[in-house]
């Protein structure tokens, strides 16, 4: 796993696809391909209101990545310093093995080059100290670019705030 994680606040996401568009612009992605995506699931009635669930998907940047194992040429690469999994274009032969190997359908086909390309967490931006484009441009700021310990901390804080606000009386 890369040392980073992107979290999504489901309550804030409005399924507008700004993340997809910002990503496509930033990475000049050819038509048809998407690095990150929002998959609307539903609507399904919850408490009398039909709710839709917007599932944000991008690459998990696995520690022991199926795509890397499947790649015959070493094009699919794990960046040493932070674990970002990316394609070295000069080594990719377009065999699509990685696309078949990834259980989440992450590697994408670039019609223009006849090679695979995929989410690299906008590493050019990360190297400048910036966030991935999907996170940066998100309309409602429902996406957060963070590290796992920070992400879990945030969840705990949110939970703590909630139980404190729901407290009916003090017990001490």
């Amino acid at each position: 796993m890369s040392k980073y994680v992107i979290t999504q606040d489901q309550l804030k996401c409005i399924g507008c696809l700004a993340c997809v568009v910002h990503c496509k612009v930033e990475n000049n992605i050819s038509p048809g391909a998407r690095f990150c995506d929002i998959l609307p699931v539903g609507p399904k009635e919850v408490n009398g209101v039909p709710r839709i669930f917007f599932v944000y998907m991008n690459c998990f940047h696995c520690e022991d990545a199926f795509c890397i194992k499947a790649c015959p040429t070493g094009a699919m690469t794990r960046r040493e310093k932070d674990g970002i999994v990316y394609v070295r274009q000069e080594l990719c032969i377009g065999c699509k093995s990685c696309m078949k190997a990834c259980p989440w359908g992450i590697p994408q086909w670039d019609e223009g080059t006849g090679k695979v390309f995929k989410c690299h967490l906008c590493m050019h931006r990360i190297d400048r100290g910036e966030k991935p484009a999907c996170v940066e441009g998100c309309t409602t700021s429902c996406l957060t670019f963070t590290v796992p310990e920070e992400a879990t901390r945030k969840v705990r804080e949110k939970y703590a705030t909630r139980i404190a606000s729901e407290l009916k009386s003090t017990i001490w």
């Binding site: 507008c16 696809l17 700004a18 997809v20 568009v21 910002h22 612009v25 940066e136 441009g137 998100c138 309309t139 409602t140 700021s141």
Partner: peptide, 12 residues
């Protein structure tokens, strides 16, 4: 934040 809706982002 640098938020901008998809139409705005597609201005490029």
């Amino acid at each position: 934040a640098k938020s901008l809706c998809p139409r705005g982002a597609a201005g490029v």
